[in-house]
């Protein structure tokens, strides 16, 4: 008798065996515990990770970027900017740009890569905190 035949023979005999069973109330006990738990919290809430607001904002940014790309840039004085924004007085951004350039000159010893890594890391931590707060799941 080869291996396969031996296995088939045992499987055949197995069909007639009875395994140990738990008490007759087992299923209702399990279901009772589960139903009690689901009363406390909804069973499976499928909430999208990225909400509606996020997609609206993203679409708005994408649209804005598209408009800017299609109509040129403010420095060139063409398209969208010249047409619609030429009448609006431009804000005085000199103090801001001065402090920004002084900040950059102070951190000049740091390489761009380090700065990008720090910025990216901070962004990731912030995102994780925000998402974790909103979508935490209790496993207790």
């Amino acid at each position: 008798m080869n291996n396969e035949e031996k296995e088939l023979k045992i499987r055949e005999m197995m069909k007639g065996i009875r395994l140990e069973s738990p008490g007759p109330e087992f299923t209702s006990m399990v279901m009772g515990a589960i139903l009690k738990e689901t009363e406390k919290r909804p069973a499976f809430v499928t909430e999208p990770l990225l909400g509606k607001k996020f997609w609206i904002l993203l679409a708005a940014f994408a649209l804005l970027a598209l408009v800017l790309v299609l109509t040129g840039s403010p420095q060139e004085g063409t398209g969208f900017f010249q047409k619609y924004l030429s009448g609006i007085p431009s804000p005085d951004l000199r103090p801001f740009s001065e402090s920004l350039s002084s900040a950059f000159s102070q951190t000049g010893s740091l390489t761009w890569t380090v700065m990008l890594v720090l910025l990216g890391g901070s962004g990731l931590i912030l995102t994780d905190k925000l998402l974790g707060r909103k979508h935490s799941v209790s496993l207790s």
């Binding site: 395994l19 140990e20 069973s21 738990p22 087992f26 299923t27 399990v30 279901m31 589960i34 139903l35 689901t38 909804p42 069973a43 499976f44």
Partner: peptide, 23 residues
């Protein structure tokens, strides 16, 4: 069905596999 909220449907799986798990 269970994932959609029909908790009671889980009893079918409990009944089916309780003997193997218990033994």
């Amino acid at each position: 069905r269970i994932q959609k909220g029909d908790t009671n449907a889980f009893s079918f799986l409990v009944t089916k596999y309780q003997d193997v798990v218990f033994s």
